[in-house]
Nucleic acid binder design. Sequence first.
DNA 1: AATGAATGAGTATTCATTCAT
DNA 2: CATGAATGAATACTCATTCAT
Lengths: 184, 184, 184, 184
Amino acid sequence: MSEGRRVNRGPGAAADNRAALIAAARDTFTEIGFHAPLSLVARRAGVGQGSLYRHFPDRESLTLAVFEDNVTGLETFAANPEITLEDVLDRVIEELTAVTAVVADLDPTTTDSRITGLAERLRTLLAAKLDADRTTTPWRADLSADELVLAVAMLASLLAHADAAARPELADRAWNLLRRGLAP
Amino acid sequence: MSEGRRVNRGPGAAADNRAALIAAARDTFTEIGFHAPLSLVARRAGVGQGSLYRHFPDRESLTLAVFEDNVTGLETFAANPEITLEDVLDRVIEELTAVTAVVADLDPTTTDSRITGLAERLRTLLAAKLDADRTTTPWRADLSADELVLAVAMLASLLAHADAAARPELADRAWNLLRRGLAP
Amino acid sequence: MSEGRRVNRGPGAAADNRAALIAAARDTFTEIGFHAPLSLVARRAGVGQGSLYRHFPDRESLTLAVFEDNVTGLETFAANPEITLEDVLDRVIEELTAVTAVVADLDPTTTDSRITGLAERLRTLLAAKLDADRTTTPWRADLSADELVLAVAMLASLLAHADAAARPELADRAWNLLRRGLAP
Amino acid sequence: MSEGRRVNRGPGAAADNRAALIAAARDTFTEIGFHAPLSLVARRAGVGQGSLYRHFPDRESLTLAVFEDNVTGLETFAANPEITLEDVLDRVIEELTAVTAVVADLDPTTTDSRITGLAERLRTLLAAKLDADRTTTPWRADLSADELVLAVAMLASLLAHADAAARPELADRAWNLLRRGLAP
DNA sequence: AATGAATGAGTATTCATTCAT
DNA sequence: CATGAATGAATACTCATTCAT
């Protein structure tokens, strides 16, 4: 008699569950912060706690998956040659104001290859755009992609501690300041 | 038998205990982060748990006290007219690499007067120096003290998430970037 | 080596655990009083602390469950038409001398529906018997079920403060007095 | 330098302190219940915790002192021959609705002579009035002072668990019921 | 492979009691 | 004799993780 208990949808549900967990984690971390109980993430994803642990054996795996999801989306977005570095950064900022906690809590000095790999993908993506835009956009001549990543990381950290409601305005002020440091 | 119950040094120990708690909190938050167990802070301060709670009824009180301690030190330092804004900022940065977690975890968008009061003291201090230096130092003409505070806050947030060992180098890179945004 | 971590009997143990917790709570509250540590209840039930909190998120939930268990037993008992109000009251008194603390600690003036619901079930049960017995038994003509509940509540409160050993005799004396007030 | 600290008023303050503690205890137990922190009682009495312990080495001593205070007041009141048992009981009830917690938490089955002594004084007082009134007032011929004490104890227990706001009405209903049991 | 109940270590917090001043 | 800070044991409660089904 399995009444009450969610039906076991079997192996086919695995991919769905993974996606639901990532989405739930993004929302939950955004709202409650990075220290939100994992049980809450599982509940919101409509998934058992055991499944969460099967997909993501620790909190960091889950965080990384959320980040990975963002980077992938960004890569797709940036693939279009019409899109400028400015556009990409705008989107990054926009996503940050929502997701911050995730990126911010990834130790920027880590040597964990899962993290550095993602950071590298982000760096690569920004470097490519930077190269493409260099002559036509208002960026400092010696600006490096590393500096861009650093700027984004600072912004992310700042926003992670702010109240969700105050993030947009704070992001604006901070990005303005950072932009000056990136401009020619 | 030197174990067992700590001797009760009596009310006279109150001031010492308070100071020891602040120092222990600073160290512990720096090492372990803002979520370090308060019981550990008490132990390191060589003080009973109850005394910790008497002096600082909640985690935020303790955090604020650490911050307050820093601001006070900074005020004393800045009182000397020989000291330039550059000097003050250097000291702030230096302290940040150690204390970060504390400052970073104070919600920058709060309206709690205990927090805004301290932030205001910091802003005032920086504004005074900024004014004094304006004509002779390399700061943007329209630079405001608010922007300085924001820059410091961003740096603090960033460092708070970094491994203690990596902070000095990271602080350097980040501050360089921010400085460009503050320069003329 | 039978020590160490209790074996995880799995979800199937849920119902057993719930029942064990209610039984342990009844015993513990009776012996130690309503303020007995919940950790003790869990230990006596042979159940982890977490499970106690899963089943009963707060002390009141647990108290209510014990009370509910009693009312349910009483309803079953009273279902038999041979059973008179006198019989029911005798059983109530008898149970009170054991359970008192539970009933007594439920605020008689509350508006919490979980509590009033149970109280209502008790009132209903007594009212039905009262009605059935009215002509043939020695009850005051204008006696209401509310008065019966009040009498029981007073007795329960009294016994809750008495030493367990002294309860039977005390219950006897008090009930005699109350009975006079309920008689014609 | 003892600034901040309350001045030490010296030995002469002892009696005042004792009275203040009893009054504070009565109020606090009434409002918060018998389990109110003793530190709160001391604070409200404007007295150090050490002094509380000097006067009343344990919680029960303090409780007893409150009770004692009430009985003494009652004895004075009852000394006047014009005062009937009815009057005395009315005053007892009235005080109960305020002080309940105190009386209720004194184990009615105890053999502690400090408690039985006070209970005996109350019993004596009621017995005297009962005797004086017997022929002229509406009391059962075989009513004993013990029954009166028991009735009062039941009422006290009941009220101790009720919300302070609801006590007057509850006291009324309950006393009505009890009175029937005491009437001829 | 999924489910969610069970587990208990880890933390926070309170408060009775002691004791230096 | 008064004061109130210090102490730490006792409790409440949370949540990461395991595991029977």
